[in-house]
Design a protein around this nucleic acid. Structure first.
Lengths: 139, 139
DNA sequence: CGTATAAGTGATAAGATTTATCAGGTATGC
DNA sequence: GCATACCTGATAAATCTTATCACTTATACG
């Protein structure tokens, strides 16, 4: 899954490309919207230590390869991204969709000149109920 | 601080207006961008139990009176809001500014028709370095 | 290639955070 | 006022996260 772009990101950030970090990134790519602990549980079966998963998430998040967002339950959940992305989250089933479209840059520019902040990024999570849950609940 | 609007929100959501919940909301209003545990620590000195703070945050968040966002450190931090708001966060000192302006509604409408989601809200956190930190670091 | 070395890993334990429980208190509607 | 459903505080239990340290490995360089 776009391994070359992924590898470039590792190199650019001075991150070593270890099998564990790749596994962590892939875990969030396959099932987006999970918590660190959930992924740590799964990867433990592959012999990857939980401390390693926590460390890998910090490193990948810092490199912009994972995106964290606050779930309505007050947890931080992550999505694997390559470059910039936002998430669309179902409040019922927790399904997560990555969105590549972004129109916030304009807003950021205006905000930068208005507030004097040197702006360096943002996270956007949009919540709703997915079509399947709507149907199941007859809404 | 807009107590009437706050009280209306409580009533609309069927939340009881207890001194503890008001204290929790005010704590986040006075110092935005803190974690639950930080506020629980402070309010413990006023005799408010930590479990109560955790419960109050869930209730207030559900009522749309607190906004949670994922900090770059992987924690969930909260801002007191009345109605809709976003946050501007300094990556250095953690200073948080609430932003009332929002242009995401249009985007949400298009997304709703495109994905079939029944969209019901979003969180936007914009990160950067505040003017004071920029100056202190000579950037 | 080999080797040096800085960085990363796994296991474990320690620490910190969050939730469950339950007896008692209190805001709300009548 | 009174009843009642909801909320609170204290405590304990359960979870989650980080620190430590000996060992391993990815990268750079000759």
């Amino acid at each position: 899954m776009h391994s070359s772009a992924l590898y470039e990101q590792f190199a650019e950030r001075g991150l070593r490309r270890t099998p564990q970090r790749l596994a962590v990134w892939r875990a969030f790519a396959e099932k987006p919207g999970r918590t660190i602990r959930q992924v740590a549980g799964d990867l433990a079966e592959e012999g990857i230590g939980q401390a390693t998963v926590y460390r890998a998430v910090r490193a990948l998040e810092g490199a912009g390869l994972l995106l964290g967002y606050a779930s309505p339950r007050g947890e931080v959940r992550y999505v694997a991204v390559l470059g910039h992305a936002h998430v669309l989250v179902c409040r019922r089933c927790g399904e997560v969709t990555s969105l590549q479209e972004c129109q916030i840059e304009d807003y950021e520019r205006r905000l930068q000149s208005k507030t004097g902040y040197q702006i360096s990024g943002h996270t956007l999570a949009i919540y709703g109920i997915c079509p399947r849950c709507l149907q199941e609940e007859g809404l």
